[in-house]
Amino acid sequence: SQWIKKDQDSSFQFKDEPISLTHLADSLKLVLDNPLLRRLSVLSIIYKGLQMSVLAYMVVFLTDMKFSLVFAGLALAVSNFGAIFGRIFWGALADKIHSSRVVLAICGILMGIFTVVLSFTQADWPKFVVLIVSFLLGINSLGWSGVFFAQIAAAAPHGKVAEATGGVDFFSFVGAIFVPMAFGFLGHHLGEFTTGFWIVSAVTMLCAAYLLLVKDIQPSS
């Protein structure tokens, strides 16, 4: 179904319209035809790929480092807890500096840095240090999506925010599926996860550096 405006008092009603493959294809075509949405799609593949790699392998990595399974689960929970503060903080910062692009770039650089820091974790590290790193990693690697969806809304053509969001989010799930798979494949053949963390961190920081070089995404006129 599709929302249509009913009157000036901002009330809405449903317009019955069957969902078809054509509608799904239209969302992807909208994204691929719009340079700004294409850029966000590539960003979402990379950022979401790092996010899901951290979520999927943090516990395995920490247990490989001889931490207990209970503590590794606690570290993952603390990382998710950090995401709560990240979404609020990054949203407030984007409003303050009037640039979601710069905020997303900062997020990408920091999530890369803290993922590398996580990769250096050793069994003799104090547990509170590991939890702090997990928390800071969660603020960035799990807290970026609020600002990201605001960018999609700004870049979408007038009246096409829902289609643009669905189209871009399709690509984010491509990253969510295939990047962790590649990460696990690499870890299996190398016998360790450190190199995988470094690779996804490097790609993410390169993407973030590129964001600093492009113009701000503004709402379509």
Rank of each mutant, 00 (worst) to 15 (best):
T165F: 05
V147R: 02
S141L: 01
C107W: 03
S41N: 09
K15H: 13
P18H: 08
L74P: 02
L36F: 06
M111Y: 02
G146P: 03
S44Y: 11
G112W: 00
P157T: 14
I46A: 06
L93H: 02
N140M: 00
S68N: 12
F171I: 03
F193S: 11
S221T: 12
M52P: 01
S119D: 08
V133S: 05
F193C: 04
P126D: 11
M181W: 15
S20R: 09
V60Q: 12
T22H: 04
G167M: 11
P157G: 11
S119F: 00
A92D: 07
W3P: 12
A123W: 09
V200S: 01
I88S: 12
L50K: 00
V78L: 13
H23V: 12
D64G: 09
L28H: 03
A83R: 00
M58V: 11
A150Y: 05
A164C: 13
G191N: 11
W144P: 00
R87N: 10
K66Q: 12
A25Q: 13
K5L: 10
L211T: 04
L36K: 14
K127I: 01
M65S: 08
L190P: 07
G73M: 06
I132S: 12
I19Q: 10
M181Q: 09
L43P: 05
V59W: 00
F61S: 00
T204Q: 00
A176P: 05
V147Y: 00
L213S: 14
V60D: 13
F183K: 00
T165W: 07
P180T: 09
L74V: 12
F183I: 04
D16Q: 11
D33E: 14
Q218H: 13
Q2L: 08
D64H: 07
H158F: 06
L37T: 03
R101N: 02
T204E: 00
I177D: 02
E192F: 04
H23N: 15
F170K: 08
L21Y: 01
D7Y: 11
M205L: 08
C207T: 01
G91I: 08
K6H: 10
